[in-house]
């Protein structure tokens, strides 16, 4: 019975996503890290909250900053700057957390500064050049470059950003545990 319900909910959610995709197509939340502008498809974004105290977790990757309490929900936050292996910087009052929902996992992204919500036409998005950029590393999370007005926005794939491997590793581990 419960499974049926769950399935139904999942389906509902998918429906919702699809619907949202139509109206939110091409809309991106853009933010600034260092000098670069980055964009995330708005369909992933749940909400934006101000910086708040983070409870650190020991023995995890350094870009996982810890846990925050989002109205009773405990969600992990990652620092996008550290994720990109940039020098960490001080959190100011412009720093904020974008809460995204990726494959039902809620995760907060710490970004230095929010920029805007932009509509980016599909034809203005170009794939990232495979050669030429200094660090190939970054290209993993960047799936496209978009020209807006006078600067270039790097479009991020949140699924890759939160590191696919992590999620897979965790589920495999838990599955193993369950089997045992």
């Amino acid at each position: 019975m419960a499974e049926d319900l769950l399935k139904k909910e999942e389906m509902d959610e998918n429906d919702e996503l699809l619907e949202e995709d139509d109206s939110q197509k091409g809309m991106f939340m853009t933010f600034q890290i260092g000098k670069e502008f980055f964009g995330i498809s708005i369909s992933y974004v749940n909400e934006i909250i101000a910086m708040q105290p983070i409870a650190a977790i020991p023995e995890v990757d350094d870009y996982i900053k810890g846990l925050i309490n989002l109205r009773g929900k405990i969600i992990p936050v990652i620092d996008v700057r550290t994720r990109f292996k940039m020098e960490p910087c001080e959190y100011t009052d412009r720093t904020c957390i974008i809460v995204i929902d990726v494959k039902t996992t809620m995760i907060g992204l710490i970004v230095e500064k929010l920029a805007d919500v932009d509509t980016i036409a599909e034809d203005s998005i170009a794939p990232p050049p495979s050669l030429g950029r200094k660090e190939h590393e970054h290209n993993k999370y960047v799936y496209g470059l978009a020209k807006t007005e006078d600067n270039v926005t790097l479009l991020l794939d949140p699924e890759k950003l939160i590191k696919q491997d992590d999620i897979v590793a965790v589920t495999e581990e838990s599955r193993k545990e369950e089997q045992a």
């Binding site: 977790i57 023995e59 995890v60 996982i64 846990l67 009773g72 405990i74 969600i75 809620m106 965790v170």
Partner: peptide, 17 residues
């Protein structure tokens, strides 16, 4: 529970507010 996204840390069983 600690969110599953975070790898399991030995010696920690969960979190609370």
């Amino acid at each position: 529970p600690i969110p599953p996204y975070v790898r399991k840390v030995k010696g920690l069983s969960g979190c609370t507010q």
